[in-house]
Amino acid sequence: MTDDPTLPDAARLRRHVEFLAAEPRSRLRAPGAMERAEAYVRDELTAVGWQVERQPFDVRWQLGSTDRHGHRALALKPRLHRRLRGANLLASLPGAGEGPVVVVGAHLDSVSGSPGADDNASGVAVVLETARLLAAEPVPPRVVLAVFDMEELGLIGARQAARALDRGSGVRGMICLESVGYFADERGAQRLPVGFERVFPEASAATRAEAYRGDFTLVVHRRSSSAAAEAWRHAAAAASPALRGLLLRDPRPDGLLGLLIGLAVPPANHLGRSDHAPFWNRGIPALMLTDTANFRNPHYHRSTDVPGTLDYERLAAVTSATVVTAVSWPETAPAM
């Protein structure tokens, strides 16, 4: 482990991933494993001084997806859930004060049959290491850490959390960590969704210029979070020369209109495949950080998504950039 307690620790990140990804975890398919993972997260947050609130939910007739393993994207696995009961964990620092917060979140569940090291123990590990670093701030920042349930069933937990947080003190911004630990430096390792080059020519050209190497973190943002995306990219470059941030702006507006436009432009739907989307849908600026999941990682949603496949030094740099962005979330003009 690093001797400097103010820096992210790659060994600590690996320890978190190894515990969480010891087995598949799901409220429906592996409830015991999910309870063990939840207890681990709660204990780790509490140990470094965070106050953790467990927020259970009980919802009916939710349009979502199936959490069976496989490489298909969320949008291609629709399912209507008759009833779902789960729980999110929300944590804050004592003395942080009142007012709108920045949310840093990741989902805890994995799909059936997959230990989910990258998807998404990697994201939860970053949340836990972010907790340790923020607890050392001289003035407690107004940051809420969120660990979501049932992302793999269609962002169910994040929908509940976004509603609860928006009705509380309000949310200035949100950072979603979605599959952030897998990197591949070889040429041709990065693939693009069908139709992506036509809809997002600049990001496609940047990927092509680097010979389709999977050596970057994709920072998905909208106009409302463009300044935060730039801040994250600069912080990542300062944290490690080995971590490149590639910005991708979703041209849709925040709110319901953006959700409806996505139904008509399928490539755009890939940009809303994680827990930031419910925040966007409520008009809240948000970022999704991702290694692009199934477009890079051959282990996505499979039994081979294990801790040994991840790059923990780069994951530490992802953590560092996330901490910097969370404590200094920049304001951006509202999306038009």
Rank of each mutant, 00 (worst) to 15 (best):
L153P: 15
G154Y: 14
G157R: 14
A162W: 13
A162D: 10
R163C: 12
D166T: 13
D166S: 15
S169L: 07
G170N: 02
V171P: 15
R172M: 08
R172N: 06
R172Y: 05
R172P: 10
I175W: 05
I175E: 04
L177Y: 10
E178Y: 08
E178L: 08
S179N: 12
V180E: 09
G181Y: 11
Y182G: 06
A184I: 00
E186P: 13
E186S: 09
R187D: 12
G188F: 05
A189S: 15
A189E: 07
A189L: 06
Q190A: 10
R191W: 12
R191I: 09
L192G: 03
L192I: 01
P193I: 03
G195K: 10
G195F: 08
F196M: 05
E197T: 14
E197I: 14
E197L: 12
V199E: 02
F200T: 08
A203E: 11
S204Q: 05
A205R: 15
A205K: 09
A206V: 04
A206C: 11
T207H: 09
A209R: 04
A211R: 11
R213P: 05
R213F: 01
G214T: 00
G214N: 02
F216L: 09
V220K: 07
S226D: 13
A227Y: 11
A227G: 09
A227F: 07
A227S: 08
A228R: 07
E230F: 13
R233C: 00
H234W: 08
A235W: 00
A235G: 00
A236P: 01
A236G: 02
A237K: 01
A237H: 01
A238H: 01
A238E: 00
A239W: 01
S240Q: 02
P241Y: 01
P241S: 02
A242L: 11
L243N: 00
G245L: 00
L246F: 06
L246A: 10
L246M: 10
L247G: 12
L248D: 06
L248V: 14
L248G: 08
R249C: 14
R249D: 08
D250A: 05
R252H: 10
D254C: 12
L257Y: 06
G258P: 03
G258Y: 13
L260H: 00
I261S: 06
I261R: 14
L263K: 11
V265P: 00
P266G: 04
P266V: 01
P267S: 06
P267A: 06
A268G: 13
A268I: 14
H270T: 07
L271P: 02
G272F: 13
G272H: 09
G272D: 08
R273S: 14
R273V: 10
S274P: 03
S274G: 02
F279I: 03
N281H: 14
G283R: 04
G283W: 03
I284C: 02
A286E: 09
A286C: 07
L287I: 04
L287S: 03
L289G: 04
L289D: 04
L289Y: 04
T290H: 07
A293G: 07
F295H: 09
F295R: 04
R296V: 03
P298H: 03
Y300D: 07
Y300W: 10
Y300L: 02
